[in-house]
Deep mutational scan, measured.
Amino acid sequence: MSIQHFRVALIPFFAAFCLPVFAHPETLVKVKDAEDQLGARVGYIELDLNSGKILESFRPEERFPMMSTFKVLLCGAVLSRVDAGQEQLGRRIHYSQNDLVEYSPVTEKHLTDGMTVRELCSAAITMSDNTAANLLLTTIGGPKELTAFLHNMGDHVTRLDRWEPELNEAIPNDERDTTMPAAMATTLRKLLTGELLTLASRQQLIDWMEADKVAGPLLRSALPAGWFIADKSGAGERGSRGIIAALGPDGKPSRIVVIYTTGSQATMDERNRQIAEIGASLIKHW
């Protein structure tokens, strides 16, 4: 067993022997301040990774656009098919120029040779490549099948209805392509620590998230040296922004954090800054 596999296998073990965790309302004060600064709703939840206990939450059962955070769930569904012998990570998928959609920095470079399922998941999570996500959605049967996968996990809230990039439209009061912070946090925890996926697939999923290259201005910008984070960000229309993450000190994750916002007129930089400040408060009061 590799060191990384050992780390993920012992996530519940280490967490069980940690000192009790206590909620700190100071972080919620910052979440509410972010709402004021952005002029928009902000949803927040913080779960203990081992027990699933909610440590703090704000608007945990209000719907927010998922945006690209759905790509972690998508690759979880792909990995479940791999575990069941219905898919192979090494299978190569070929596609054409007509398949390319807006923001496809990886797939646009491989029109000639195609990409493997493993490479597509890596591109979808680490670079948020939209064509990679659409190609992977095709392998599982489309958005409705991802929703069905989530329902089978016990998540009857999260739903995907459309493809990239239309799913980022974020129309107010439109339930399409949305989740709730509580539902997303619980589902992410199941994917990373539950028995739904094999140990190898859980490790692969967290490795992809740990290698995320496009979430630097968010929670990662607030992390002290030595902290662990595996995350996936999302951005959408109407001032929408979000991030889902597993993080913790001492090089291992111990909490799940989900943050979503929508309806702001603020710039992307300002949305990023507010999420980073929430992260800084979380870490300060850990």
Score class of each variant (00 low, 15 high):
Lys30Met: 12
Cys121Phe: 01
Thr138Arg: 15
Leu120Arg: 00
Ile171Tyr: 14
Pro172Arg: 11
Ile125Phe: 02
Ile244His: 01
Gln203Gly: 13
Ser281Phe: 15
Lys213Ser: 11
Ile278Ala: 02
Glu108Gly: 12
Met115His: 03
Ile54Thr: 12
Asn50Thr: 14
Ala183Tyr: 10
Gly279Phe: 05
Ala246Leu: 14
Val257Phe: 04
Phe6Pro: 06
Val8Tyr: 15
Glu210Ile: 15
Lys109Glu: 14
Glu277Cys: 08
Gln274Glu: 13
Lys71Ser: 00
Leu100Gly: 03
Asn272Leu: 02
Glu102Met: 12
Ala40Val: 06
Tyr44Ile: 08
His151Pro: 04
Ser221Ile: 11
Lys252Ala: 13
Ser122Glu: 15
Met127Tyr: 11
Glu175Asp: 14
Leu28Ile: 03
Ser80Phe: 13
Asp161Trp: 03
Thr27Ala: 06
Ser68Thr: 00
Ala123Glu: 04
Asp83Gln: 09
Glu169Asn: 11
Tyr44Trp: 03
Val31Phe: 03
Leu137Asp: 01
Thr107Cys: 09
Glu145Lys: 14
Ile244Lys: 00
His156Asp: 14
Gly39Asp: 12
Ala211Trp: 08
Leu196Val: 14
Phe228His: 06
Gly114Trp: 04
Gln97His: 14
Lys252Ser: 13
Pro224Asp: 06
Asp155Gly: 01
His110Arg: 10
Ala170Gly: 13
Ala170Phe: 11
Leu10Met: 12
Leu160Val: 14
Gln86Asp: 13
Gly226Leu: 05
Thr138Asn: 15
Ile206Arg: 12
Phe6Ile: 09
His156Glu: 12
Leu137Lys: 01
Glu164Phe: 00
Leu55Tyr: 12
Asn152Glu: 15
Ala230Ile: 07
Pro249Ile: 06
Met127Asp: 07
Ile243Asn: 02
Asn50Tyr: 13
Leu192His: 04
Leu47Thr: 09
Leu136His: 01
Val82Asn: 06
Gly236Val: 02
Gly242Ser: 07
Ser104Phe: 02
Ile140Tyr: 09
Arg59Pro: 00
Asp177Pro: 01
Tyr95Gly: 03
Thr262Leu: 07
Pro25Trp: 10
Gly242Trp: 00
Ser254Ala: 15
Ala123Ser: 09
Ser221Lys: 13
Asp177Thr: 01
Met268Leu: 12
Ala133Leu: 00
Pro165Gln: 06
Thr112Arg: 15
Val78Ile: 09
Tyr103Ala: 06
Ser221Ala: 13
Ala245His: 00
Val42Phe: 14
Leu73Asp: 04
Phe14Ser: 08
Ala170Ile: 09
Val117Thr: 07
Pro20Leu: 03
Ser96Gly: 13
Gly39Lys: 15
Ile206Leu: 15
Leu223Gly: 03
Ile206Gly: 09
Leu188Met: 12
Ser57Ala: 15
Ile243Glu: 03
Val42Ala: 06
Arg91Ala: 07
Ile278His: 00
His24Asp: 13
Asp33Leu: 13
Thr193Leu: 12
Gln88Met: 11
Pro12Thr: 12
Arg176Asp: 06
Ala15Leu: 14
Leu191Pro: 00
Glu166Tyr: 15
His151Ile: 10
Asp129Met: 00
Gly239Pro: 01
Ala77Asp: 09
Phe13His: 06
Gly263Glu: 06
Glu164Gly: 00
His285Lys: 09
Pro253Tyr: 03
Leu49Asp: 02
Ile93Leu: 12
Arg162Gly: 08
Thr116Lys: 06
Gln88Trp: 12
Arg255Pro: 00
Leu188Pro: 00
Val258Thr: 07
Thr147Gln: 09
Gly76Met: 05
Lys190Phe: 08
Arg162Ile: 02
Glu26Asp: 09
Ala133Ser: 10
Val29Met: 11
Thr27Glu: 03
Ala211Cys: 13
Pro20Lys: 14
Asn168Asp: 07
Ile45Leu: 12
Ile206Ser: 12
Thr107Ala: 10
Pro143Asp: 03
Gly248Glu: 01
Leu192Asn: 02
Leu120Glu: 01
Glu35Val: 04
Met180Ile: 12
Gln37Met: 14
Ile229Asp: 01
Gly242Ala: 10
Leu146Pro: 00
Thr198Ile: 06
Gly141Ser: 06
Glu270Ile: 12
Glu56Phe: 04
Glu119Gln: 15
Ser233Thr: 14
Leu47Phe: 06
Thr158Met: 03
Ala34Gly: 07
Glu26Val: 10
Val78Phe: 04
Gly263Trp: 04
Asp99Ala: 10
Phe58Val: 08
Leu218Asn: 03
Leu199Lys: 11
Asp36Glu: 14
Met127Cys: 09
Leu111Ile: 13
Ala230Gln: 02
Gly263Pro: 04
Ile93Val: 14
Ile45Val: 15
Leu197Cys: 05
Leu191Met: 14
Thr198Tyr: 07
Arg81Trp: 06
Val117Lys: 01
Asn134Val: 04
Glu26Thr: 14
Gly216Cys: 08
Arg271Pro: 05
Thr193Phe: 11
Leu150Asn: 05
Leu73Val: 12
Gly194Glu: 12
Ile278Thr: 03
Gln4Pro: 08
Gln203Ile: 11
Ala222His: 10
Pro165Glu: 06
Arg238Pro: 09
Ala266Asp: 09
Lys144Asn: 14
Asp250Cys: 12
Phe14His: 04
Gln86Thr: 13
Tyr95Asp: 01
Met1Thr: 02
Lys284Pro: 03
Val8Gly: 08
Ser68Cys: 01
Thr69Trp: 00
Lys213Thr: 09
Met184Arg: 00
Ser68Val: 00
Leu89Lys: 04
Glu175Leu: 14
Phe14Ile: 13
Ser57Asp: 09
Glu237Leu: 13
Asp177Met: 01
Ala211Asp: 15
Ala124Lys: 00
Lys32Val: 10
Ala182Val: 15
Pro60Leu: 10
Ala215Leu: 03
Gly226Asn: 12
Ala246Gly: 06
Leu135Thr: 06
Pro25Ser: 11
Lys190Gly: 13
Lys232Gly: 00
Phe228Asp: 03
Met127Ile: 09
Thr179Ser: 09
Ile278Lys: 00
Pro217Thr: 11
Asn130Asp: 05
Gly85Ser: 10
Cys121Lys: 00
Phe228Pro: 01
Arg7Asn: 10
Leu282Trp: 02
Asp33Tyr: 15
Asn130Tyr: 05
Gly90Asn: 13
Ser57Glu: 13
Gly216Val: 07
Thr107His: 01
Asn130Ser: 05
Gly85Lys: 10
Val101Ala: 11
Ala123Gly: 06
Val78Tyr: 03
Thr116Met: 06
Ala170Cys: 13
Arg63Tyr: 07
Met1Arg: 01
Arg220Asn: 03
His24Phe: 10
Glu145Val: 12
Asp113Pro: 07
Pro224Asn: 06
Phe14Leu: 09
Phe6His: 08
Ala185Gly: 14
Val82Leu: 06
Lys232Glu: 00
Met115Ser: 04
Gln97Asn: 10
Glu56Gly: 13
Thr178Ser: 12
Phe22Tyr: 10
Asp129Cys: 01
Phe6Gln: 09
Asn168Thr: 07
Thr267Glu: 13
Ile140Ser: 05
Glu46Thr: 13
Arg176His: 09
Ile93Met: 03
Ile93Phe: 06
Glu270Met: 13
Ile206Ala: 14
Gly248Asp: 02
Asp155Tyr: 01
Ala182Gln: 11
Ala84Asp: 11
Val157Pro: 02
Thr131Arg: 02
Ile54Pro: 15
Glu237Phe: 09
Leu188Cys: 09
Val106His: 08
Asp250Thr: 11
Thr107Gly: 05
Leu10Asn: 06
Val42Arg: 00
Val72Cys: 07
Trp227Asn: 01
Asn152Ser: 14
Leu196Met: 13
Thr138Ile: 11
Ile206Gln: 12
Leu191Cys: 07
Met180Gln: 15
Arg159Val: 07
Gly114Asp: 04
Leu73Met: 11
Ala34Pro: 02
Lys32Ala: 14
Thr158Glu: 00
Arg92Ala: 09
Thr186Gly: 14
Ala77Arg: 09
Glu61Trp: 12
Ser68Gly: 00
Thr198Cys: 10
Tyr95Trp: 10
Gly251Asp: 11
Ala34Gln: 09
Glu35Ser: 05
Leu100Thr: 07
Arg91Asn: 08
Glu237Cys: 12
Pro172His: 10
Glu87Ala: 07
Phe228Arg: 07
Thr158Leu: 01
Ile229Ala: 05
